[in-house]
Design a binder for these strands. Structure first.
Lengths: 344, 344
DNA sequence: AAGCGCTAAGTTACCCGTAACGTAACAGTT
DNA sequence: AACTGTTACGTTACGGGTAACTTAGCGCTT
């Protein structure tokens, strides 16, 4: 109303000091509690801090010393399904518990977005960066190297990381499923997933999957929904497309469990039996799998843990502890009951 | 290897200027592109910027002038289900498109966590704050008022917000469902949700729901899973608990669609027919509802849009445009086919 | 040729904390 | 009484960039 005079002027340390009748430095010492002041002075300063509602300006602190900020830049492709939402939750909870803040970047699966985000976030002098994926633009890599801060690449395990890598081997996880499904006797197999311009972990899984299937004499029909989000409806719709174009498919492998559930709903709606008429396999062992009546054939991946471990390694790195460069979190195949079994 | 000499020394503007043989100020002008330099000088400076890989230090910029940062603090209770993940996605996409960065805080549904987070994030001089929920601790409110920056409270519409409020009226949305279900002839109704120490939007919905049901002579049996995440398994398990303790319940209202789906799976596994033996109603119209064979009785809420609008209002506020204090995004009830209908 | 206006630059001061250093006052030692 | 050590402060400089002001240099007018 009447407070158009000026913007709510921030209270600075100098003002607190002046009010308390001491020097800036003394006030600073009191606030940091490292000693060098009398109890009387401490009370005086703290009283003024309360009265004036002083909040420290961490920008100035970072600026003053060479101490780095407590920001950690975190890039995530999207939050459209539970996969990365859980990874992010794991990261932020851990970082938050240790006084760090995540600066989020949703890079939409493109290297250009990632590069632009890296450039911006580096200008805020973050203490470190956590990036999803092992692929980055050349300029991004240059900036990351020049920044001189810890970089954790998560998700897609990278044996020669920029700095630190935490995740699983997606090729192997796809390969294992390929071998498992061919082992179950399937040869005409479909794949339903999404597609982006850039290679990513999902396409690596598909590569591993195809290698295994084709190595066993089977073949894979791909149904890629371009630029779609890998969630329920995409799986439903992609399944419809796939079955219309390739009616002979005996089993479908999905990019993740959410899409697999969508597919499951589609084939059920058409009166098909699973696994009698068609096999369904997902990936990720997402929360939804815990309530389905059939155990979804899938691959268990500890999403939350990947985030947590990534954050832990970042924190260890920041406190100067030695950190292994490459940390395989591991996965395991869940045979489930949505594909027919070898012995049936 | 051999670069243990010093930490990767950052290139500063002074160094660029020195290399280019101009003053800091001229280099600054070139980089900001506001004119006041010759084309020759521009080329000279930009060449050195490229050569040295100079990245501006935005901390210093914020520090120097009274211009604020491009940080927006965003507090979200959790990412355990799709509700807030979508809200966050809406916020970050919009903010990111306008050159702002989200500094995330997962406040785990507690006011203490929120207060601690607000204190920390304010010390980084953010341009604004987006908070989930209308309830904050007294100290938090004090800090928010003292900060003099825009604050958008989202999710739970607040007719007298601290600054700006964007969301829906959760009481009404619960009330409407209560009226709808009693209108369908249900009187012994169950509720399955999660519970936290603090009042939140879900408890407000429950209040509205109970008022409507009890006003129509029905009664509500609550099954609250303490401190659990509101997702599939919690709905599954909560339904089991509820039906064991109150076998006469005819219809169950869930905190959200994910929990409702969990409940749907539980009752199906027990051979119960929906809506023949029991009615199921969810909330949120989450993505999973799009692939179910029965249309889930629910309440459509545009999660992504709430995030987007919140971000838009923040951006408008930051650019000095007039902004309405209270923006109702609205919801609508989805009758669905998982409860029996009035005319049946 | 003096005067004016404009552009392209340089100079200075400042933002807010902190490190490093300086110093006054007092206690304890010999 | 002179010296040393400690405590409790104050002073100064600094970090990276920008606003505001100053100055140099050039072309144009009259």
């Amino acid at each position: 109303m009447a407070d158009k005079d000026r913007k709510n002027s921030k209270i600075s340390l100098s003002e607190v000091a002046k009010e308390a009748g001491v020097s800036k430095m003394t006030a600073s010492r009191v606030l940091r509690g490292h000693g060098g002041y009398s109890e009387k002075t401490r009370e005086l300063v703290m009283k003024k801090v309360d009265e004036l509602g002083y909040l420290p300006n961490r920008l100035a602190t970072v600026f003053a010393g060479d101490q780095s900020s407590t920001f950690i830049g975190v890039s995530i492709p999207d939050l459209g399904n539970e996969v990365f939402a859980q990874v992010l939750e794991g990261i932020d909870r851990k970082l938050g518990a240790f006084g760090h803040q995540s600066v989020l970047g949703l890079t939409q699966h493109t290297l250009e977005e990632e590069e632009a985000w890296i450039k911006t976030v580096l200008s805020w002098q973050p203490a470190g960066l956590i990036l999803t994926g092992r692929y980055h633009s050349p300029r991004a890599i240059e900036m990351l190297k020049g920044a001189g801060i810890p970089v954790v690449e998560i998700w897609d395990l990278n044996s020669s990381p920029l700095d630190i890598s935490v995740g699983i081997n997606h090729f192997d996880s796809g390969f294992d499923m390929g071998r498992y499904l061919t082992g179950c006797g399937y040869t005409r197999i479909g794949y339903v997933g999404t597609s982006h311009d850039t290679a990513n972990a999902a396409s690596t899984r598909l590569d591993g999957f195809c290698k295994a299937v084709e190595g066993s004499g089977g073949n894979v029909t791909r149904q890629l929904c371009l630029h779609d989000t890998a969630t329920y409806y995409t799986g439903f719709y992609g399944t419809e497309q796939l079955l219309l174009s390739s009616p002979g498919v005996e089993c479908i492998y999905y990019q993740n469990d959410a899409m697999a559930f969508g597919g499951l709903q589609y084939v059920s709606s058409k009166g098909m039996d699973v696994p009698g008429d068609i096999g369904i396999a997902g990936w990720g062992d997402l929360p939804i799998a815990s309530v389905l009546q059939k155990r979804l054939t899938s691959c268990h991946v500890p999403h939350l843990k990947i985030g947590q471990v990534a954050a832990e390694m970042m924190l260890a790195r920041l406190s100067g502890e030695p950190v292994q460069a490459c940390r395989d979190i591991g996965f395991h195949l869940i045979p489930g009951t949505t594909v027919r079994h070898e012995d049936s």
